[in-house]
Write a protein that binds this DNA or RNA. Structure first.
Length: 963
RNA sequence: GCGGGGAUAGCCAAGCCAGGUCAAAGGCGCAGGCUUCAGGAGCCUGUCCCGUAGGGGUUCGCGGGUUCAAAUCCCGCUCCCCGCACCA
């Protein structure tokens, strides 16, 4: 039964909205527009609660703005571009059990559908259909006439993307270049983090190769510390490693066999002349290229031929590993004999110190090895020692005189210069390699490949960055703290490889073997929404959407007649499209999760500033946290994946929306808890019952202070909810609209006994409208229960009415409430069951003092002496100076600690006739305490006051006596 | 490593930018009472410690400081989360 009610209500109103075409928005010059967007979801799976959270925030804003009279457009589309859909499809074809199980169990894909997923387009289509239904069910106020999906399977969209990229290339923002990637030699494609069995988060690092001279060949030794060349003492080669002599771009290099393969993937022409074991080199001498010193090659099994060139030079003064290796060799005479290396060659090697660094002496490497007690080459602490010395020397190390022109410089300041110089001198080169092992999902070990002929979006361009920064400065950013994040990411972005060889998408128009990559084809598509309607409505063919046409529509370029003639699209249609684009653009709000800031949202900014004039740049960006499920990050593998569909099935749309919204705002991560959803379900049911009761009320039309209080307080709520949504503080807004107002009404009903039905209905009408953006289906139902015609979705948003704000009534209510609390507190502490409760309200002169103090305290901090001086000017008060002093002293303390706003409110409320107010509320107090309540004035000579309590009374704090 | 966000009572979570109404909103949970034929419903009360008169004490990651006054401002420290590129 519980489920049925929500579903019935939701389906009913959804149908009515659709029949009325309520959310279809067309340009209307008489109304201000508001264009909100949600990043189209990727269709390799169903929508989940995370999508639901972000999109609900968009919908709340859309619904709010619509009720405020804006012409609101909230369109929707689907993202198909990229690898994963194709990848999943292939895995299904190959019978990937785990994936198939996940699709069946989590996505609830029926068996007969699953079979057809071997076609990626079928799969994308399936999820699109599914998701569209879910988007409708959750009540997003979408104009579906503008729906589309991406890729070449939506030719009109493809034409749009082609236009975008041709335009960007003409502007010089798309350029050709090279780029190192982690590469699987077997799959012949880049291996992204998600495609790896081993080595997540590992990316290519650039090594410097120092070309040591070895006869007519070079021994290119790999290092991150080229400056240490000044301290080289020898070289290490793995005697058992496979090495080659190869022509590398015409030079003879001696490197490991795998290095030869790697280099051939890094834009070098590699021709292997012969292969041999490393031991062949041991005991021979090479020449260091700067000063020509002759140095020995020694055996080192720690040298990994699979790492970089497999050639390592030794700097024992500064590299702990080198020092350890040398020390090892010194003791191993047999070994040296085997390689025919005279022991004195090793013994005579003296570390050469080239960096002075605070905290260490001549030979940091030797010191740290001793300090950390590192025993041999295989000690795991060796790595830590290496990185410690490296960091310390890099940041604070100063090069010694031995380093020639670099002497006296801090390492980190000259490193780049050294590399550049060495390259110029022809003694250094570079290569990429992976610092750790990476294995592709296909089980092949990955290498680094330099892709050539890559197309890049030139996000490194300083002028482009400057404009992007400017766009962020001009936009509203919710929350404000995300603004810095954007600036930071804009600075950090480098050129972006914007085309791929595989996956779905739109081919690069001038180089169609490349497909425009997924993040790059989704940056300005909001513009496409504005014309997607016309393309469908007028049956415009993709071929008609030429560059001229888009130039005209989006940039206002070209001659209308000419463009029309050439494209075959009628002039009035082109004009209409141009006008519609200009009407809706710019985007007024785009919202996404914070994980998209460094990529999608920044790209969105970059591309807008490149293509559109300032007045069409995005107006506001909202960023939110990532959804957690029961305190855990949502993931299919953890089994805590909740689809939006499943949530709606379980709780209904309104409960789902409200639960999501109450979860979090700003950049905090909302946490979906089943317990919360259930409690909100109960809350909304009881709201339904309460509004039903209110709608049936009649009679009682006297307007009391408590009625004015309710009307007043609801104004504050209107204001707070309105401001919160304006700033996308959706949690705050929902919290006030649901709970705070509820509490207000509860207090009102409790206080009022028999409510004023007119006023309560008025407030209910406001309340339901304030809730509409959050729980639209239920509110439509309540709206009609309250006797309204038409949709609440387009009803007028309640407006803050200052004339109804009644500070005095609010202060009176605070007074009553605190009297209630005080009395209750006494009863609790004394454990009395009261028969009679006596209140004694403060005498008029006390009030006079109080008001005077409040006034005085507006401008300064009160001080006893001054205050008394002021008060003594009052004749009546002067006569009672003795009793005055202790009261004033207490009041000063009280008043001084009041914030200025409160003081102003109290002054505005003025003297409150406490006797009257308590008498008015006598019934209420008697009901609450189940006792007789008597109220006296402090100065009433006939009062009943057996304990002499009356004199304790202070303004707003009557004395209390209970018996 | 670089960058961003955090740490508040049993839990979740406001407040901090603009210092005082803060023992600290709201929700959940828990306890007691009321209402109800019943109820994963509603209403009331309590939920840091002490208290037979509305009061007092000790709290807002840790340690200092500024101030008449600090959860809020300043300095230092510890810990946690998130992102880091060819991937949507």
């Amino acid at each position: 039964m519980t489920q049925i009610i929500w579903r019935e209500i939701e389906e009913k109103w959804r149908r009515k909205w659709e029949e009325a075409h309520l959310f279809e928005a067309d340009p209307d010059p008489n109304r201000k527009k508001c264009f909100v967007t949600f990043p189209y979801p990727y269709m390799n799976g169903p929508l989940h609660l995370g999508h639901g959270f972000t999109a609900t925030r968009v919908d709340v804003y859309a619904r709010f703005m619509r009720m405020r009279g804006y012409n609101v457009l909230f369109p929707w589309a689907w993202h198909w571009t990229g690898e994963p859909i194709v990848g999943a499809s292939l895995r299904i074809k190959s019978g990937d059990k785990e994936l198939i199980r996940a699709l069946k169990e989590i996505d609830s894909v029926p068996e007969e559908e699953l079979e057809k997923f071997v076609d990626p387009i079928y799969m994308a289509n399936y999820y699109t259909q599914e998701s569209r239904e879910v988007v409708k069910r959750i009540g997003f106020s979408v104009d579906w006439r503008r729906e589309f999906h991406t890729t070449s399977h939506e030719p009109a969209y493809s034409k749009f993307i082609e236009w975008q990229y041709i335009t960007l290339r003409d502007m010089g923002y798309v350029v050709k270049g090279t780029h190192p990637v982690v590469w699987c030699p077997s799959c012949q494609s880049p291996t992204g983090d998600h495609d790896r069995l081993v080595g997540e988060g590992v990316f290519p690092e650039e090594y410097v190769l120092i070309k040591f001279i070895f006869g007519d060949a070079f021994l290119p030794a790999a290092t991150f510390r080229p400056e240490t060349i000044f301290g080289v003492t020898n070289m290490f080669i793995n005697p058992d490693g496979d090495y080659v002599e190869a022509l590398v771009n015409g030079e003879k290099w001696i490197i490991s066999r795998s290095a030869a393969i790697k280099l051939s993937e890094q834009l070098r022409k590699v021709n292997v002349l012969r292969e041999f074991k490393g031991r062949e080199l041991i005991g021979k001498y090479f020449k260091e290229p700067i000063s020509g010193r002759e140095l020995p090659i020694l055996p080192g099994w720690f040298v990994d031929p699979d790492s970089a060139t497999g050639v390592v030079y030794s700097v024992p003064a500064h590299a702990p590993a080198d020092w350890i290796a040398l020390k090892d060799l010194m003791d191993k005479l047999d070994l040296l004999r085997e390689f025919k290396v005279p022991p004195e060659v090793v013994r005579n090697i003296k570390p050469i110190s080239l960096i002075s660094v605070e905290g260490f002496g001549e030979y940091p490497a030797i010191e740290i090895v001793e300090q950390m007690g590192i025993k041999d080459q295989f000690d795991p602490k060796l790595e830590e020692a290496t990185s410690l010395v490296y960091r310390k020397e890099f940041h604070t190390g100063v090069l010694k005189p031995i380093c020639g022109k670099y002497a006296g410089k801090v390492v980190k300041d000259v490193k780049a210069q050294i590399i550049e110089d060495f390259k110029k001198m022809g003694i250094a080169s570079t290569m990429y390699d992976l610092p750790q092992k990476v294995v592709c999902r296909c089980t092949t070990k990955c290498i680094v490949k330099i892709l050539s002929d890559q197309w890049f979006l030139k996000y490194s361009d300083p002028e482009w960055k400057r404009l992007a920064h400017e766009a962020i400065d001009l936009a509203k950013v919710f929350p404000e703290s995300a603004r810095m994040y954007f600036h930071d990411k804009i600075d950090w972005l480098r050129d972006w490889a914007c085309a791929r060889k595989t996956g779905l998408g739109t081919p690069l128009p001038w180089d169609p073997e490349w497909i425009i990559e997924t993040l790059s084809d989704s940056t300005i598509y909001m513009a496409f929404y504005t014309i997607a309607k016309h393309i469908r409505q007028y049956g415009i063919h993709a071929e008609q959407l030429t560059k001229d046409v888009f130039d005209y529509i989006f940039l206002g370029k070209g001659d209308l007649g000419e463009v029309s003639r050439r494209s075959g699209i009628k002039e009035h249609i082109l004009k209409e499209m141009r006008d519609e684009f200009l009407y809706w653009y710019p985007v007024d709000l785009r919202v996404s999760a914070k994980e998209l800031v460094p990529n999608h949202l920044s790209f969105f900014i970059f591309q807008h500033v490149a293509l559109f004039p300032r007045e069409l740049w995005p107006r506001a960006i909202g960023v939110n946290g990532m959804l957690m499920i029961e305190g855990q990050k949502m993931s299919k593998s953890k089994g805590n994946f909740l689809t939006l569909k499943e949530a709606i099935n379980r709780y209904g749309a309104d409960v789902t929306r409200m639960t999501l919204l109450l979860g979090a705002e700003d950049m905090d991560d909302p946490d979906w808890r089943d317990e919360n959803a259930r409690s909100i379900d109960a809350k909304l049911r009881s709201l339904y019952a309460l509004i039903g009761q209110i709608s049936g009320l009649s009679g009682e039309d006297e307007v009391k202070s408590i009625d004015r209080w309710l009307l007043s307080i609801i104004q504050e709520r209107i204001k707070a909810v309105t401001e919160a949504i304006e700033n996308l503080k959706t949690r705050t807004a929902a919290e006030i609209a649901l709970y705070e107002i509820w509490n207000d009404i509860r207090w009102y009903l409790r206080r009022r006994g028999s409510p004023n039905s007119m006023i309560l209905k008025e407030v209910a009408s406001i309340w339901v409208r304030l809730l509409t953006p959050f729980t639209p289906f239920l509110c439509e139902e309540l709206w009609s229960i309250l006797g309204n015609k038409g949709f609440i979705s387009v009803a007028k948003w309640p407006e803050y009415d200052e004339s109804k704000v009644d500070v005095r009534s609010e202060e009176i209510e605070l007074f009553i409430k605190s009297l209630l609390d005080d009395t209750m507190n006494i009863l609790r502490v004394t454990r009395l069951s009261p028969k009679k409760i006596y209140y004694y309200v403060a005498a008029p002169w006390k009030w006079r003092v109080y008001m005077r103090l409040l006034e005085e305290s507006l401008s300064r901090r009160l001080d006893m002496r001054e205050v008394m001086k002021v008060l003594m000017t009052d004749a009546e008060l002067r006569s009672m100076a003795k009793i005055l002093a202790p009261l004033v002293s207490r009041l000063i303390e009280e008043v001084n600690s009041l914030p200025i706003e409160r003081k102003q409110r109290l002054l505005k409320a003025g003297v409150i006739d406490e006797f009257y107010e308590i008498s008015e509320s006598k019934e209420f107090f008697e009901r609450e305490f189940n006792a007789t309540v008597m109220v006296y004035r402090e100065d009433d000579p006939n009062k009943y006051d057996p304990r002499g309590k009356a004199q304790q009374s202070k303004p707003l704090k009557p004395a209390i006596y209970i018996e």
